[in-house]
């Protein structure tokens, strides 16, 4: 595997996304509802905490993953 992303990285990216979706939509669900009801964090922009946390975290994770791709990808022609 000389160029591009190697097998380990490829598998880790896949697992990372699967794990992330699982956490967000299965485990965090209950936690976030708890946050919403108890208002542990002051709401921003008139939004509930869970909206800020879940949407913000997703955007950050996506950018981090694409940044990782850019740094590790070498490419060839």
């Amino acid at each position: 595997m000389r160029n591009g992303i190697d097998q380990k990285k490829f598998i880790s990216i896949n697992l990372f996304f699967v794990l992330y979706i699982f956490i967000i939509f299965q485990v965090k669900l209950r936690f976030c509802y708890m946050l919403a009801y108890h208002k542990l964090i002051d709401s921003m922009f008139g939004l509930p905490d869970i909206t800020i946390i879940v949407v913000g975290a997703t955007v950050i994770v996506v950018i981090a993953a694409l940044l990782y791709w850019g740094i590790t990808f070498k490419g060839h022609d």
């Binding site: 955007v59 996506v62 950018i63 694409l66 791709w69 990808f73 490419g75």
Partner: peptide, 18 residues
């Protein structure tokens, strides 16, 4: 023209479009 364009295209396209 060049596969090297694929290096940063995903991130740049995501940020601009999002």
């Amino acid at each position: 023209k060049d596969v090297k364009y694929f290096k940063w295209a995903p991130l740049i396209a995501f940020i601009i479009y999002t």
